[in-house]
Design a binder for these strands. Structure first.
Length: 163
DNA sequence: GCCAACGTTGGC
DNA sequence: GCCAACGTTGGC
């Protein structure tokens, strides 16, 4: 069995917050709406069931890590690409050759909100892709060391216990 | 609302 | 295949 990989996945809380995700059946959300090839390729080519996911709130008043999740399906076509009523509709995609795929993401647990400003203060996280200037990718890889550090130093603590 | 950064588009 | 123009992202 290949080693687990780790990912950070951005969701706009206006669209799907950590609480929205928790309220879904089996606490699972199909990760619809990715329309960037690099992010798609991560889901299509590299993700495996059981991979760790940082559920991240973006484009909101308090951007940051909101929970821990895991990849819970293999890739399959994003249904919204075929729906003319969806904002994610893609007229150039066909059912025979779907352009966009997604995976299901299952919430493991909600965490305290770890703001991006706090992430920036940790030397151990300095190389995280999400912190890079101008980063716009909605899905980015997280190293095993970063994952471990986040879990041990930031997410295991009781709320309000930040450094 | 601003604006830097980046991806995509399309003319050539 | 180049590259300017344009649209989008997303923190601030």
């Amino acid at each position: 069995m290949p080693a687990k990989s780790y990912w950070l996945m951005k969701s706009e809380p206006d669209e799907c917050s950590i609480d929205d995700a928790l309220a879904m059946p089996r606490r699972t959300v199909p990760w619809t709406g990715v329309r960037n090839y690099q992010a798609r390729n991560f889901m299509r080519d590299l993700m495996r069931i059981g991979d760790g996911v940082l559920f991240y709130h973006s484009s909101c008043a308090e951007p940051g890590i909101a929970g821990l999740a895991e990849v819970s399906s293999t890739p399959y076509p994003d249904p919204t690409q075929f729906d003319p009523a969806s904002p994610y509709f893609d007229a150039k995609s066909t059912r025979e050759a779907p352009r966009w795929v997604l995976v299901d993401v299952r919430i493991v647990r909600k965490t305290r909100l770890v703001p991006i400003a706090e992430l920036r203060r940790h030397e151990a996280l300095a190389d995280m892709a999400v912190l890079r200037k101008g980063n716009r990718l909605s899905i980015t890889p997280v190293s095993a060391a970063e994952w471990r550090y986040l879990n041990d130093a930031l997410l295991a603590a009781a709320p309000g216990n930040e450094a």
